[in-house]
Computed example of a mutant assay.
Amino acid sequence: MRLHLTAVLILVAFLAGYPRPLPAGTLVSAACSCGYSRPSLPLFGGFANFKTVCLFPGLCQATGQLVLFNVLDPMARPRDCPHGDITSYADPALAPQGPGETVASWNIAQKNMTLTLTDGGYYCPQCKRKTLHFTHSGLWD
């Protein structure tokens, strides 16, 4: 049985322990010890839309809720924050004080930036303390 050269190279890279690119967007869940939770948040972009969509969590200033907004199109308002300003969870005001373990990361070449979520210490919209933690929960496309 002959294997295609690309398949062989992928297999060799996998066996050698080299990191593989993720095939799609990342699902994360947000939870706080106060009871607040948001399961399965689809971050970044998928195969079909990664050039125009990059979803990232933010805090809607009008409602005080965690929302997902499109970093690549900041003028497009999410349904759950149609009229308010959104502060990104990458903003130091909402982000943890110290570095944590990376839960999700996405490079946006056209904006020369990388969006990263770590495992915790983010501003919680319910208790208003920096006790919100993100965990990786899967992939989406």
Rank of each mutant, 00 (worst) to 15 (best):
G58T: 02
G58L: 01
L59R: 04
Q61C: 07
T63N: 02
T63Y: 06
T63I: 04
G64I: 05
G64H: 12
Q65E: 15
Q65S: 12
L66W: 03
L66T: 06
V67F: 01
V67M: 02
V67E: 00
V67G: 00
L68A: 04
F69Y: 13
F69R: 06
N70I: 03
N70Y: 07
N70C: 09
L72C: 09
L72D: 00
D73V: 10
D73I: 09
D73G: 10
P74Q: 08
M75E: 15
A76F: 10
A76H: 13
R77P: 03
P78E: 00
P78L: 04
R79P: 00
R79M: 02
R79T: 05
D80Y: 01
C81H: 05
C81D: 10
P82I: 02
P82L: 03
H83I: 14
G84R: 00
G84T: 03
D85G: 14
D85I: 10
I86A: 01
I86Y: 01
I86V: 11
T87L: 13
T87P: 05
T87Q: 13
S88K: 02
S88E: 11
Y89G: 00
Y89H: 03
Y89S: 01
A90W: 02
D91I: 11
D91T: 13
P92K: 13
P92D: 14
P92S: 14
A95F: 03
P96C: 12
P96Y: 05
P96K: 01
Q97C: 11
Q97W: 09
G98P: 01
P99T: 08
P99H: 11
G100N: 10
G100W: 03
G100A: 12
E101C: 08
E101Q: 15
E101V: 12
T102C: 09
A104V: 12
S105K: 11
S105P: 11
S105F: 05
W106N: 11
W106A: 02
W106V: 01
N107H: 14
N107D: 14
N107M: 13
N107V: 15
I108S: 09
I108V: 15
I108E: 10
